[in-house]
């Protein structure tokens, strides 16, 4: 338990402001794939609501619809940020605000890479 606490302190102390590039690859692979692309949810085999995020190619295809057309299938007529800001997905764990901010930055920049 002591080691666990030390690990926490180390992590808190060592982090820096978000140095990640706001690219579709980082958005897809680091954020959306583990949070949304589970096989029983938005994966290429389940394709829940018509979207998959478990691979880069699938995530790009989904994001082209969610970001550019502003429709989200089962979530109603809202865009990606609308779904995220509703705070109902993912159902088992909230997205981290740093991740949400990076997605917003990427969209504000014109969603490069799609």
């Amino acid at each position: 338990m002591r080691c666990f606490g030390l690990l926490l302190v180390t992590v808190v102390a060592c982090g820096a402001q978000d140095p990640r590039p706001a690219t579709v690859e980082v958005i897809s692979l680091e954020i959306l794939s583990p949070s949304c692309g589970a096989p029983q949810c938005h994966s290429t085999s389940t394709n829940q609501s018509g979207y998959a995020f478990d691979t880069l190619a699938a995530a790009k295809a989904a994001l082209r619809q969610l970001v550019h057309t502003g429709t989200t299938g089962g979530h109603g007529n809202r865009d990606l940020m609308g779904v995220i800001n509703d705070k109902k997905m993912p159902p088992d764990a909230p997205l981290d605000p740093e991740d949400v901010a990076l997605i917003q930055t990427w969209i504000t920049n014109g969603a490069p890479g799609l």
């Binding site: 992590v11 978000d18 680091e30």
Partner: peptide, 17 residues
């Protein structure tokens, strides 16, 4: 149980318990 996950060690505050 207690859990910890740091999503990216480069980003301050990007962890959950």
């Amino acid at each position: 149980g207690v859990g910890h996950f740091t999503e990216d060690t480069r980003v301050k505050g990007l962890f959950r318990d």
